[in-house]
């Protein structure tokens, strides 16, 4: 899902994406409320939210870049830097923590070659982070790979799961 932005900023809110955003305008009394949806659209298109994207969202919704940046950094799911092609979130909060989640997190870091939580593997394929409660505590350990929610992950299952993400 992720593409890394290295060149100059290319406009996201044009054509179909702009139409999708504009279709949401009547659902809210002001444009500022479109900020979270707009940021999701940017991240879906570009993989992360760059300075250029912040400026574009600000311009589109009539906000300032500083304001948009303040909101982006509040929410943990918006990436403020490029991440691997596949972004893995592993839950290690207490209920999963008492059922072996930390071992799963270690196995994910090792098998992906990321070296550390939050780092991207040298081949650009994966980034692994620990997250707080994914809300599937009865099925430890839940992980999110991109948009795929996977439950009951154990250390043994890690290699086979990763093989599905090229």
């Amino acid at each position: 899902m992720s593409t890394h932005e290295t060149a100059a900023h290319e406009t996201v809110f044009a054509g179909a994406v702009l139409a999708k955003l504009e279709a949401l305008y009547p659902k809210y009394p002001d444009k500022r409320s479109l900020l979270l949806p707009a940021l999701w659209m940017i991240q879906e298109a570009r993989g992360w939210i760059s300075d250029g994207s912040v400026a574009e969202v600000a311009e589109t919704l009539g906000l300032t870049s500083a304001y948009v940046r303040g909101v982006v950094t509040f929410y943990t799911m918006y990436h403020t830097h490029p991440v691997g092609r596949h972004f893995i979130q592993v839950c290690t909060t207490s209920p999963c923590g008492i059922c072996g989640a930390e071992d799963v997190a270690r196995a994910l870091v090792k098998e992906t070659g990321c070296g550390d939580l939050g780092a991207t593997s040298p081949d650009g394929r994966f980034t692994v982070i620990e997250v707080e409660c994914l809300g599937a505590c009865g099925f430890p350990t839940p992980i999110l790979i991109d948009d795929d929610f996977i439950e009951n992950v154990t250390v043994d299952r890690v290699p086979a799961i990763l093989a599905r993400y090229i």
Partner: peptide, 28 residues
């Protein structure tokens, strides 16, 4: 009318007034 509004990773947005701020496009 019902509108589904997606959060972006913040436990605190489950607090009702934080949730309202989040829907309004603010920090939660």
């Amino acid at each position: 009318d019902i509108v589904v509004h997606r959060g972006a990773g913040a436990y605190i947005c489950g607090e009702e007034t934080a949730m309202m701020n989040s829907i309004e496009g603010r920090r939660g």
